[in-house]
Amino acid sequence: MVIHYLGEGNSLLNQFVAELRDVDIQKDAMRFRKNIERIGEILSYELSKTLEYGPKTIITPLGTKEMTLPQNELVLCSILRAGFPLHQGMLNYFDKAENGFISAFRHHPNDADDFEVLVEYFATPSLKDKTLVLIDPMLATGRTLENVLKALKDYGTPKQIHLVSVIGSKEGIAHVEKVFPKNTHLWISAIDEALNSRGYILPGLGDAGDLSYGSKL
């Protein structure tokens, strides 16, 4: 797997990640969602540099201009519900992309630390020979993305897979590296060291879905 760790260098990206982590700024759900959306835009721009390009003649009011434009058929697929703001940020840039949505969530039987990932809803166009972008803001254990990959098999084999996350753990990244095709690309803003006993990223930022849209039962 090719890992693009964009938070390693100095850039405005790290300001947005810092605000996502900040317990005081987190109280503003609208700003939290907007920062994830802006991170999605930055990751989209960097991802766009790796796509396939071809020539196209553009007609202007005063003549013509040969330009090189992206050729990939993209499908943006986000994991509900935390993936919505990141999905929107990417859709702001890849506005011609097709879209898919999948419900995958952790189930903790009897509120124990151990959990299973349940996939209960999936809506997507055909993925056959397309460029699939899987969007999950928090790459914790990697088991959610693994189960999503299994669920995708009935929808065609994509030509290329890109994973897009805001924050990931080293353990989770190592796991997806094992289960996804070797030519998969991971685009990520921050990588944290550890997981707690319930599989949440430390120091992380908390529950991205709850911080975006409110707590759930």
Rank of each mutant, 00 (worst) to 15 (best):
I173E: 14
E193G: 14
A123F: 11
A151S: 13
P158E: 01
L145Y: 08
V119A: 04
I167F: 07
Y121A: 03
P137I: 09
D154T: 13
G172N: 05
H162Y: 15
T144G: 01
I173N: 14
K150R: 10
Q160C: 00
T184V: 01
Q160E: 15
I191E: 14
V176Y: 05
L132F: 05
K128N: 11
N183K: 14
K128H: 14
I167L: 12
L163H: 00
T141A: 08
L139S: 09
I167W: 07
E146L: 00
T184S: 08
A140S: 15
Y121L: 07
E171L: 03
K159Q: 13
G156Y: 02
V133C: 10
K130F: 07
V148N: 08
E177T: 11
T157Y: 11
A194T: 14
V119E: 08
L152D: 08
V176A: 02
Q160S: 11
V119M: 08
F180N: 02
H185R: 02
V148A: 06
D136H: 11
L127Q: 00
A190D: 15
T141Q: 07
A151D: 00
L186C: 03
D129S: 14
Y155E: 01
D136A: 03
T141D: 06
T184R: 08
H185V: 06
T157D: 13
H185A: 13
K178D: 12
K128F: 12
S126Q: 06
L163V: 12
K178Y: 08
W187H: 06
K178A: 14
H175L: 14
L132I: 04
L127C: 07
E120K: 07
D192N: 10
T124L: 07
T131M: 06
